[in-house]
Design a protein around this nucleic acid. Sequence first.
DNA 1: CTGGTCATGATCACGTTAAACCAATAAATT
DNA 2: AATTTATTGGTTTAACGTGATCATGACCAG
Lengths: 344, 344
Amino acid sequence: MSNKRKKQVTIYDLATELNVAPSTVSRALKDHFSIGKETIIAVKELAQKRGYRTNTLASSLRKQETNTIGVLVPWVNRPFISSLISGIEAASREAGYNVIISQSQDSYENEVTNAKALFGSRIHALIVSLAMETTTYDHLEEIIQSGTPVVFVDRVPQQLEGYRVMIDNFRTAREATQHLIDQGCRRIALFGGAPHQVIYQQREYGYRTALQDNGLAVDETLIHTFNRLTIEEGYRLTQQVFEGPNPPDGIFSTNDSAAVGAIKYARSAGIKIPEQLAIIGFNDDPVCEIIEPQLSSMTHPAADMGRMALQQALRIANPDSPPAARRVNLDTQVIARASSLRKG
Amino acid sequence: MSNKRKKQVTIYDLATELNVAPSTVSRALKDHFSIGKETIIAVKELAQKRGYRTNTLASSLRKQETNTIGVLVPWVNRPFISSLISGIEAASREAGYNVIISQSQDSYENEVTNAKALFGSRIHALIVSLAMETTTYDHLEEIIQSGTPVVFVDRVPQQLEGYRVMIDNFRTAREATQHLIDQGCRRIALFGGAPHQVIYQQREYGYRTALQDNGLAVDETLIHTFNRLTIEEGYRLTQQVFEGPNPPDGIFSTNDSAAVGAIKYARSAGIKIPEQLAIIGFNDDPVCEIIEPQLSSMTHPAADMGRMALQQALRIANPDSPPAARRVNLDTQVIARASSLRKG
DNA sequence: CTGGTCATGATCACGTTAAACCAATAAATT
DNA sequence: AATTTATTGGTTTAACGTGATCATGACCAG
């Protein structure tokens, strides 16, 4: 019923009450050097008493700069992404920024629409993880051109020049594969993602390199590409592979979900893990510790990546800060669990 | 380097180019009835050509109303919450609103700070799920008083008058307990949450009622309270209960994590599920289908709750829409899986 | 009485839009 | 036919709250 909002307190109100000019109030609130100490105290006290809150809209409009960070991700309800957002949110709030989120739902079309919407909100900076479908980047190029800082996280664009925060996918995949080899695997299958996404290319390359490092031939029939890397896809493909000739003795899955699918099939088919089949995933989702046997994986420091992406975003275009790095790589490590650890 | 942002196109630019007044452009873009058809077309065409995007800051300032929805939750990286946010985000974007998120990290202090920050951003409405710690509500009362629509989701306040979107916790808990009874359980333990949170009170009440419905005595020693309902807590408490005298033959856990802990302990201690111990959780997190045996649970329609919360939020204070409901309850149902299904 | 601080005031401008106003033509009334 | 009234298609003005810029006045040292 009370459709009528309480009138907000403005610097003008404070000014009249204190018999000073609005601009004095404005400056006092910001501890401007040219305002007397007593005035500053008086203004702040009254502001407190009257419940004054600066109108960020007006301020942003005037300053031609918002305190809002845009985040554009495929989905918010995925373990990796939600932790990424958690990191971005925490760091943003500490730095005095708000976070607007939007999800592309892995659709290119949505990504374009949302990018435009965020851009229209005059965000201070944009942090993006690309939709699976995305192969062209005009919608983001446009934003970069406008001078808005853009930082790509994890799923980064192929060609586009820009700032990136990632893990070293090549090295991480190489280590994951090496781990399986160290555990005695000789025929390792690869469960890879959409081949136009850089991160999956790099992971495949890491896999290939590890094999070569150890003098193992790359068997192309062991390399599989997934559209969505879901549990179901992992299950189905594992089944298919094991019903064919010459099954693998190890699987390196480029995410955890597909690896879980593999474990599920193996368990249902009576395939012994890790003796007959060693499995390692990617991301170290919470599920790794829940499934039986527990799933080995590569850490993917989601929250740290979020914090780092924000830091970079704030450094771009801020001449008073250390310069932003074009490319930040965060450390990862092998978490060896029962699914790959062969005793002795 | 290009620290200088491209100057944005304004209605003023379009107006001069078309030799009309800025207000005409403004109205044309909104298909105002008093503007001629041809003018509207001409304006829109030019706007398109010049890449005009309305400055939402200016618009919001002028209209005294933003298109931003504030979301205040304990954590974004939890399955239930991230799905809730996903629902809010999707519905908001469809309705033309942005979503600002902030997490209290289950701390009362953070919740207050963030509430103030969101309020300062002049949000159109606020959707809140309370921090575990929160027991007083002045920070939210203040926002409600100001006329900003506030909708509580899931973790709602005890006394505070306000709009709520929840599930029927009482009925849902009663059904969960009844399910265990139907499967032959006679000594059912309750794993409950923070007792000052309404939802956990209601769940306990539902549990008690189900027992009484079936003529079973309530054994207070079977009722356990958890601070955080984590896997570890669930594990430890199950161990404690089973090392004591007269262990239960069923567990109703008010979230899935604690139930997973219970399964883990049972498995390690050789307790047969569901024969010796039947377990049902709450939320139907993805983990339910991953753990072995699969965990029975009660659905908790997170994304739907998010969409519904947004719908209510937009209806409050909008006289042109159907009135908002003080209380919306969404349906839930039992998902019976191996952890509780006793054959025959 | 000149010049320099210190503390503050006055004046827009940021981009948009609601409200009030206006001119010209078409339609309705006497 | 003459006059009033509506309708169409705009324009002008002001305001939303803040803050950068430039102006001002009091006081004091030299």
